[in-house]
Design a protein around this nucleic acid. Sequence first.
DNA 1: TGTACATCAGTGAACGCGCGTTCACTGATGTAC
DNA 2: TGTACATCAGTGAACGCGCGTTCACTGATGTAC
Lengths: 238, 238
Amino acid sequence: MCAIISDMPAGSIRARVRAEMISEIKAVARQHLETEGANLSLRAVARDMDMVSSALYRYFASRDDLLTALIVDAYNALGATVEAADAAVTDRADLRGRWLAAARGVRGWALANPAEYALLFGSPVPGYQAPQDTVPAAARSSLVLVDIMADGYAAGAIAPTPADRQRLSPAVRADLSAIIAQVAPGLPAELLHRAMTGWLQLFGTVSFELNGQLTGVIEARTEFFDEQMELVCDVIGI
Amino acid sequence: MCAIISDMPAGSIRARVRAEMISEIKAVARQHLETEGANLSLRAVARDMDMVSSALYRYFASRDDLLTALIVDAYNALGATVEAADAAVTDRADLRGRWLAAARGVRGWALANPAEYALLFGSPVPGYQAPQDTVPAAARSSLVLVDIMADGYAAGAIAPTPADRQRLSPAVRADLSAIIAQVAPGLPAELLHRAMTGWLQLFGTVSFELNGQLTGVIEARTEFFDEQMELVCDVIGI
DNA sequence: TGTACATCAGTGAACGCGCGTTCACTGATGTAC
DNA sequence: TGTACATCAGTGAACGCGCGTTCACTGATGTAC
């Protein structure tokens, strides 16, 4: 559950005001994440809204519930950004162009929303356990990458090589098959494996940039990112 | 500065007891990181040592100083592990074997010390700014990877391709050259670029495993990791 | 070798601040007759 | 259309807890003469 659900008639004035309040609480909380990191303080959020801290409990049952709502929102915002970036590529057969667009979409969103990115991909918040609600939202951005591979396979542009087949162990193949059944029926496991390579490279690069691991090493961040992504496209054969 | 420096005669009993105390404080603090994440509490550490919290100030000037000491230690522990893993490969010309050994060294250390790994590569601790002291220690593990490339280049086993040269932008080339001058004189920038691809893939994969991004996706973690590393060795040509 | 002195480790109390959550309550806003 | 009642938002005080850091202090341990 993200926010406390009331049985108010939907669309009523009260329901609309309530929805606006929830949005504003989340917006203020996002600002706090930006400055304070994941140690989100309910009292600080309430203070910024000129409310008493206990009033927040009308909207969220606990601090963890608010965190969960922020996480789900962030996954969806990232997912929507990446989906839009991919969709903006008019030549749907241009797999590399689509992949690069999606990758730049991830990086752009992460740079614009570093605190939310950290919430999703940074070290786990102590004492917080993400509930199942977050899973579908979490998958959205990754699904874009899988779709690119699936489109390429359907069009005959990419296919597993013998070297691919040899590399995959039965155990990993089984894991991949389980995902394929849910997400992209018919896609060869080898191609999902390649997509995951790109996925790891993409998020690894973005995470290192955001966590400061490139400080003093690489200054031309945008060029470096693009060249890494070009290289990874070579690897996965698109 | 990691610990408060006193002008006691080195090697005296007091100096030895003092060094042991510092080690024990750090050890207890490491245990707390394991359970509580990066929100390290001096009072909690003191409690576990049956001391009063103010006594810790004999050994560390502040909480941040203790954190810095833990970070430097962790970087060094990781670096030593990776160096040992590489050094254990007797056939020094077996670049792929050395790379895989180093990569498994990183992953093994990370799985054994997840909290410390998070401290190094996770989201930045709010309000904490790493001082310059951490830089040399931070570089150790990466240097092993660079050395493998440098050895391969010196032996004539790997060399830049025309495609490599074309890909690199002048800006990134300049960044890479600055590092090469300090760390591996004579190494072509293209080969350092390849090493960084592997470096990003390696830490990206380990971070995703530790942060739970593979939960419900890949269960055969060790096989998956090895296969990703094999693939990345293909990419960087070793 | 014995004594006076300096150094150091650790104590305990305090300052000033933070936090999440509960609970009885006051008013205002909506709803049903 | 007007009134009685129920629902809801927000208040303010409190509980019980945490934290980093400072400071004057007590003893114990070492050092110099």
